[in-house]
Design a protein around this nucleic acid. Structure first.
Length: 116
RNA sequence: CAGGCUGAUCGGGCAGUCGCGGCGCGGCGUUGUCUGCGUCGAGGAAAGUCCGCACUCCAUAGAGCACGGCGUCGGAUAGCACCCGGGGCGGGGAAACCGUCGUGAGACGUUAACCUGCCGGAUAAGGGCCACAGAAAAGAAACAGCCCCGUCCGCAAGGACGCGGGUGAUGGUGAAAAGGUGGUGUAAGGGACCACCGGCGUCUGCAGUAAUGUGGACGGCCAGGUAACCCCCGCCGGGAGCAAGGCCAAGCAGGGACGAAACCAUCUGUGGAUGGGAGGAGGCUGCUCGCUUCCUUAUGUGUCCCUCCAAUGGUGAGGGUACCAGUCCCGGGUAGGCCGCUAGAGCGGAGUGGUGACACUCCGCCCAGAGAGAUGACUGCCCAGGCACAGGUCCGCCCUGUUGCUGGACAGAAUGCGGCUUAUAGAUCAGCCCGAGGU
RNA sequence: GGGCGUGUAGCUCAACGGCAGAGCAGUGGCCUUUUAAGCCAUUGGUUCAGGGUUCGAAUCCCUGCACGCUCA
């Protein structure tokens, strides 16, 4: 996931966490909020319950790798935050992607994939 | 061969697909949070932050005190308390050997390589503390006891009593009781005296750069522990930290000071400048001294109020310092961008010197620089290793394998280095010590 | 990333280097028809972990671990 699709500013994180709507799953939590700019921005977090920096970074990398193929299908003008949960370290990539698809469908953010 | 250690190195590899960050070179009717290609992209601890530096700001970093740190000797280093090599005093260390005990299993002791803790001063400065127990805990002490003397009882042995005296040998207490053993001596005893041993002081031979080791002579007979309690001696340390610090953009409450006080000299283009003096505000992150930086040298035909006039002025004179403007200082708020920001006490190789830490010479190389924080995901093959299974065998904790299953730890740069500490599945190499068996 | 600080009973805290305590909570009893309150008694500790100094350590000195605070 390139940096232009990421949510980077601390104030943006605070805004999404405060006003966004959240959707939970055992592996990951999705928080979404409509935004003014056109693109989709995704932020990824892992709390200190993960323990060491290695495990936090691994959780975030897995989430970034899982969201990457779905980026083109998400309806624009939305800011998303993905919060990792502890069992994600044992999960396989396909399971994480399935979880993300379910969450995005629940949030009605998933557009029909391009048939081309 | 077995066991015990020490040091060094490595700490998965290859290929494919998808993906991320920096830099370089290009591309574009789109100059971008764009795109193509190339290239580089975590560690031995990147960690803890326990020390030491570089670097930055505070003034260019001064003195004394306070405070803190360190403290065997020599070396290494930019520097370091932890590095290297020695010294002293402890502690640990075997399934082997040896010794003792045991019928025996074994127990205890001694111990190799090696690991590990501590290291100025406790008479010759001073103070404090040493609970409980004990008679007494630091220039002492008589509880029991031992001995002598006196009185009384008793034929005697002996016993009882005493504001009587001697004693520090015996007992008990304690972590520690003011050298130990043996003898002489004594009423009983005591370094009171003697021999040996231990320890102390002075002088001194030899070895060593030194700490120290090992001898000798003399002396006085002997000095408790604690300085990781205060303290004394010596050495070192200014403080804070890259969220240091600098620049840019955006931008908002509030507070304080100045208008009273003194001018002088030189130059001058008559605006002023420089120096001295005076006043004020800081700084040297605790205090004092000393030093030093900055500001002012008297803002306004302003508003308001007060006082004065051989007297009411087309804007008089003097004052107040309440307000306004101005200047300066303090402070509040936002968390945006750029720099600092990676060529260095650098890395790799070879050689030389040194026991070593390390140093020097030559050759080659450029090797992360993020900022919600890049180095990842998936697939396949392989390789250490582990467990089965099968075979071999000198039979053991051994060896072999076109076999099966399994399988790689601790951990993620954030200014950069050096050391230390802590976590770490395993693998390889080199070396040391002890023992056993075979030839 | 840097800088500070704190760890003692289930909880909140004490403790000149000399037997680890107080309050609340818990347990048992008294009182009460019962509960609460009150009164009496009582249990409960690897003083965060590991080394060291000392005759003796919660205390002094190192190292580690956990937690908390703070800095533009």
């Amino acid at each position: 996931m390139q940096r232009r699709f990421r949510l980077t500013r601390s104030t943006d994180f605070k805004r999404v966490r405060r006003f966004g709507k959240s959707y939970a799953h055992p592996l990951v939590v999705l928080v979404a909020l409509r935004s003014e700019h056109t693109g989709v921005h995704v932020g990824v977090t892992a709390g200190k319950t993960f323990g060491t920096a290695v495990r936090r970074n691994r959780a975030k990398r897995l989430l970034r790798a899982a969201i990457h193929p779905l980026l083109g299908q998400i309806s624009p003008s939305h800011d998303l935050i993905l919060i990792a949960r502890l069992p994600i370290l044992q999960a396989r990539l396909t399971e994480i992607q399935a979880a993300l698809t379910t969450l995005l469908q629940n949030a009605r953010l998933l557009e029909k994939p391009d048939e081309t």
